[in-house]
Amino acid sequence: MHVLIIEDDVELAQFIQKGLQSEGISVSVAFDGVIGRSMVNERQYDVVVLDVNLPGMNGYDLCRYIKQNWPAIPVILLTALGSLDNKVLGFESGADDYLTKPFAFKELLFRLKALARRHPSRAPLPKRLELLDLAVDTESHQVWRGSQRINLTAREYALLEYLMAHQGRVVNRVDLLENVWDVHFNTNTNVVDVYINYLRRKIDNTEPKLLHTVFGVGYMLRAEP
């Protein structure tokens, strides 16, 4: 699971981030509405935790924007405004849940996980994913590099498909463990690195190299060196 926190209270945002990361959840943070909107445009998150009173773009407007463009992504509004009118406004803006400050972290975690289960945000993949001469058929699970058919194990294919669906973006190990191995807890396993090496030997035995390591961050598929 990858959660986006949009909260201008730096201390609170970091508190939530640290707590979620301790649960093995991948977290990104934005401190104003405009940056938050830009980050939502760049990748698809499983849940957005959104403050109402934000600089740049307020939470109600940003929630409407998210729901107009990505209606499947659940949004939890965080606010000190707990009146019925404020809650109605929040839900009319498209929010899936509404949590009044101050709140217990465990309650936020429970609601976040419940929303992620009820509202899977993964959009269907296109039938064919391509990057230069690398092609993946998501229906038949067949893979080619140029005219050469590449035979992959089921796990190697799942890893490649996820990376292809996020090509041009750095994908960290937590994302891969959650989405390819369905592991949702902290682990020191090196299984991701092992399978990256397996995959690299099969798809990158020709030029240009497509699977790149971003040291200290993760991996990405891209056409540039």
Score class of each variant (00 low, 15 high):
R200D: 15
F105G: 12
S140Y: 09
T189V: 03
V174W: 10
N179L: 08
D182K: 15
E130C: 10
E161D: 00
S93I: 06
K106H: 15
V180T: 00
A158Y: 03
L176A: 06
R122I: 14
L131Y: 04
N86E: 05
E161L: 00
L159P: 02
N186H: 01
D137H: 07
N151C: 09
L115D: 04
T189F: 00
Y98T: 07
A158H: 14
R118S: 12
R169H: 09
M164E: 05
V88M: 09
Y157D: 03
F110T: 15
Q167R: 07
K202A: 10
S121N: 04
T153F: 09
L99A: 13
L84M: 10
T153W: 10
G168D: 04
R145K: 12
N86D: 15
E92S: 12
I203S: 02
V192W: 04
N197Y: 11
L210T: 08
A135E: 11
D193E: 15
R149T: 06
I196A: 05
L108M: 13
R155W: 11
N151F: 13
L115Y: 04
R169T: 09
P124I: 02
Q148F: 08
L132R: 05
A95P: 08
N86R: 01
R117S: 08
R111P: 01
D133V: 06
H166F: 02
A165E: 00
L211P: 10
K127I: 09
L152N: 05
L176R: 00
N186L: 06
D193G: 12
H212S: 01
A104F: 14
L176P: 00
R201P: 04
L129H: 03
E92D: 14
Y98W: 12
D182Y: 13
V143Q: 01
T206P: 00
H184D: 03
F105D: 10
V88W: 01
Y157S: 07
H166Y: 01
K202C: 13
R173E: 14
R173P: 06
V88T: 11
D137Q: 07
T213A: 14
T206E: 09
D133M: 07
R117D: 12
H141W: 10
L125G: 02
D182L: 13
T189D: 06
K127T: 14
T138F: 04
N197E: 15
D182M: 11
H166D: 02
S147G: 07
A116R: 15
G94Y: 10
H119C: 12
N188L: 14
W181R: 08
D137M: 07
L115C: 01
E156H: 12
Q148A: 12
R145S: 04
K202S: 13
L177F: 13
W144D: 02
H119V: 07
D96R: 08
V88G: 02
L125K: 08
